[in-house]
Write a protein that binds this DNA or RNA. Structure first.
Lengths: 360, 360
DNA sequence: GGTCGGTATGTTTACGTCAACATATTGAAG
DNA sequence: CTTCAATATGTTGACGTAAACATACCGACC
């Protein structure tokens, strides 16, 4: 008899019910604090927002009530009213890569100083879909602005960004109207190539980063221009993928050509792989071949042959990104729209004049 | 006469006014979509949340209205009601450090797959205040859970975490009741030291990471235990700070001691600096001294002497962190509370048997 | 000693969403 | 044809906060 009854009920319930569990969280609200302190919730709000028109005695009462209850303002409710989130979005490719990691860290530091948190979305594939997904998630009005650390080129010419969302592009395309922050790659490349030519090398080979990287492309372009301007022959471009492995592979090739006396690698990791290949092939650095990198990673100075490279100050980039974003968020329109950070050539032991007898 | 008038007015205004500008943002809301589609906003809500009890014709109408207006759900309003944010917090120290960057990237990847975004807070100083500030910002109920990539030890024994906030600790202290994910540092260390002892070295020196790092401490402890268990003498511990520079410094010292035939550096960067110092001092690797590292950074295989090291799979760590966090967020209590990831010894060319004549 | 300007506080309302409840419509079983 | 359950939709209210508006009080000035 009871078995029949059991079957009858229960069917109406999971019909329209959401799969989520209930909030059930019991954070104290302003109302709780207000009750405890014997004031209105608006006064609590004033104290929470540090307004000046609150009597100091009242303020004390409220503060101690907050303390006692462990009150924390509810970001969601606040954001709903103010339209501000206290968060910046960062969309970036592979953070395992040195430059991107440093940039992210710098942005996060700068953001923290401005009392913003950083909502990070990593993008693995360089497809439009992946980037769009990352943006969509951030664009759900949960950040006040987005830094796009573009670095890699996409198949699509332009992303559709919501007009009301402040955006800053770092290390990326400049063919758009968003403010952007970049290292002056051309300057960096130029200083390396000039340095090597100045040492007496007939020309400088270039081990470039992947074709789909903005930075790699700019470094390569500046390399070519510097050679051309100096009247030096332009050797064929060699491509790597930023990894030490790819530098090694390219190095095996380059080591076989006696006419190669100077190589400018587009980053330090590739320079390391390159040096290893040269070493294996019995060509000394910088005796037979001069090698220069780009980035100045922490260990560049401590390689068997300390690496001549280009130092980049990521801290400054992060600060600039956040500053430009805050300009937009807070409605300032008088700030600059482009900030370039000058990299600095650091000359160590991996570059030297070519041996008198060589190919020149 | 007019000059007097000017002074009189204006004083009431900036009294209670907030310094912020108005929202003024005009995103369409569910109500707008509802009006356009000719349904109630609740029906729009149902469509937005992909509920099943909506007529397909109605659903189409709503969807096209959303499309036309460019509607995006408002995260803040949703979060206010549901108590969920679709965001995970990550609190981490220096992201410039290889391991932390890789961990962050892996967590971000795993989070993205679960359709969560990642709210990143970098902590620079290892002071309680800095960490507390980072937590406070995240704890403002704007994330559903927090991964603390602890790595460095703090002066305070325990952080006060809100009980309702799911937390996972990665790479940190185990003296708490939060689920945690770690590499099995002891296993990694043990395999390196055993490897070196097995090659015939009388003992193995250790170039440790900073004393305030959990990982460094565990690697050092396991190093000591392995030596003790094998009956090998325990040389004095040498400390570095993870950087190639510190490895170089320590290396200058170690190179002077002829009894040093094998050194286990707590990370690859220090191993690089160390090798450079040995090289400068005319001691060959691995001929005179064997060197092993920890991390297996991308370029470890492409150093002049490819480095024997311990490979760590950060992807897996990230996946585990997110999985454990989601377990808590979604109320699953049957999952594991601790996940260890096994690192793998990678033997390359920097380790070999000692020369017959040496000190043994 | 009353008007006035200023300060401290309280009251009301709206932000956008979703859960709970209410209602209309449909179809099937008795 | 009635009864009942299931489905589709609408209505109301609440989440926690801060802006806008309202009130109470205090001191100063003429």
């Amino acid at each position: 008899m009871s078995s029949r009854r059991k079957v009858v009920r229960m069917a109406t319930d999971n019909r329209t019910r959401s799969p989520r569990s209930r909030p059930a969280r019991q954070w104290p609200s302003m109302a709780d604090v207000a009750t405890m302190a014997g004031v209105s919730s608006q006064t609590v709000s004033r104290v929470a927002n540090n307004r000046q028109n609150v009597d100091s005695a009242t303020r004390e009462k409220v503060l101690s009530a907050m303390q006692a209850l462990g009150y924390r303002p509810n970001t969601a409710a606040r954001a709903l009213v103010t339209g501000r989130f206290g968060a910046l979005g960062v969309v970036s490719f592979d953070v395992g890569a040195h430059g991107n990691a440093r940039t992210l860290a710098a942005i996060a530091d700068a953001a923290r100083e401005a009392d913003f948190s950083v909502n990070f979305m990593g993008v693995r594939a360089q497809t439009e879909a992946a980037v769009r997904h990352a943006f969509q998630h951030l664009m759900l009005q949960s950040v006040d602005g987005i830094v796009l650390v573009e670095s890699q080129m996409l198949d699509t010419p332009s992303l559709r960004l919501p007009p009301a969302m402040p955006v800053v592009v770092a290390d990326g395309d400049t063919g758009h109207d968003h403010p952007h922050v970049d290292f002056d790659q051309a300057h960096g490349s130029h200083s390396v190539v000039s340095h090597l030519l100045g040492l007496g090398h007939r020309t400088v080979w270039h081990l470039a980063g992947p074709v789909d990287s903005f930075a790699a492309r700019r470094r390569a372009e500046a390399w070519r221009r510097t050679l051309t301007d100096a009247g030096a022959p332009v050797p064929p471009l060699v491509y790597g993928d930023w990894s030490a492995r790819s530098g090694y592979r390219a190095g095996l090739d380059l080591a076989r050509r006696p006419e190669v006396t100077a190589v400018f690698a587009a980053n330090d990791q590739m320079a390391m792989g390159l040096m290893r290949a040269l070493h294996e092939a019995g060509r000394s650095v910088p005796g037979d071949v001069s090698v220069a990198g780009f980035d100045d990673v922490a260990e560049a100075a401590y390689l068997p042959t300390p690496l001549t490279t280009v130092h980049q100050d990521f801290e400054v980039v992060g600060k600039h990104c956040v500053a430009l974003l805050l300009d937009q968020i807070e409605g300032r329109t008088d700030g600059p729209l482009r900030r370039a950070v000058e990299p600095v050539l650091v000359i160590r032991s991996s570059t030297a004049s070519p041996r008198p007898g060589t190919s020149a």
